[in-house]
Design a protein around this nucleic acid. Structure first.
Length: 273
DNA sequence: GCTGCTGTTGGCGG
DNA sequence: CCCGCCAACAGCAG
């Protein structure tokens, strides 16, 4: 679920609070960490949907929240095998599936709540991680121009819905925002890249992502800000989760939902030709 | 209680 | 190489 706007919000909010603090403990109930002691967090960055903590001594922590994971910031105590927070928001069910905790030298913690245990947190050699990222993850749409966007998108032969979500082409877009972007651009999700107005697609891509960042992401499902509050984009859906309802362009279209492999896509059959 | 749906990534097979 | 499919997991709606 966390796509570019959610990860961007998390990274912005985290960097305000954790930069120059020291890590004094790493805990997880699903993976083991190598010994690290007293490493300082030098920076917090986003690469596509990945969160990267730059540490002193050339190490980096790579966090991917996958589908249902989200980072939180606060204080917890470990009681009877569970992490308990005094903060009411952080005790909400969606925030209670804690599988990773980074403890900082001021007693605060970064925790990852993830009911489905897909999310990962790993310590990497900085150089190795940089190489992996540049090999596997394309630029995000905010940092390239139309020419580069067009070049990358039209290289692919799959339907545009799939290409938009291909992290090696451009990074950061998942199921929700690709549905919303294609509706905004009036593009049918099954069209091939060579057949479309890429200029319009590019403008809609940036427009939707910028709007979603402004609203601090989409909390339809598990995603929360690091203090446990909700983002606002779920109130702005035009097609996502609107199957069976009238298209908001009032063109007489009823939003359709179709299967694409094991996931689903939504679109208006009238305005998305 | 059971089934189906959820959404990201990586691995597998064609 | 490129593409499409599906498992990994667990909660939740119906």
């Amino acid at each position: 679920m966390p796509e570019l706007p959610e990860v961007e919000t998390t990274v912005n909010d985290l960097s305000i609070t954790v930069i120059n603090k020291k890590i004094i403990g790493l805990w997880s109930d699903i993976s083991s960490f190598p010994k690290v002691r007293a490493l300082t967090i030098k920076g917090v960055y986003r690469r596509g949907k990945n969160i990267i903590l730059n540490l002193s001594s050339k190490k980096k922590i790579l966090i991917h929240q996958k589908i249902a994971g989200h980072l939180l910031f606060g204080e917890w105590s470990f009681e009877d095998g569970k992490w308990i927070s005094k903060d009411e928001l952080l005790r909400e069910k969606v925030n209670s599936y804690i599988h990773f905790v980074i403890t900082l030298n001021d007693g605060k913690m970064i925790a990852l709540s993830d009911p489905r245990k897909f999310a990962k947190m790993e310590i990497w050699d900085g150089k190795k991680l940089d190489r992996k990222m540049s090999n596997e993850i394309g630029p995000d749409p905010m940092e390239i121009d139309l020419k580069e966007f067009k070049k990358r998108i039209t290289k692919k032969k799959s339907i545009i819905k799939t290409v938009l979500m291909d992290q090696s082409v451009i990074s950061g877009i998942g199921n929700i925002y690709s549905d919303e972007i294609l509706w905004d651009a009036r593009i049918n999700p099954y069209k091939r890249p060579k057949d479309l107005d890429i200029d319009r697609l590019f403008r809609s891509t940036k427009k939707i992502l910028i709007k979603a960042i402004k609203l601090k992401g989409d909390s339809t499902s598990d995603y929360r800000l690091i203090d446990g509050t909700k983002g606002g984009y779920q109130k702005e859906h035009r097609v996502y989760k609107r199957e069976g309802l009238s298209c908001l362009r009032k063109d007489g279209g009823i939003i359709e939902r179709r299967k694409l492999g094991s996931r689903s896509l939504r679109f208006c059959p009238v305005c998305q030709k």
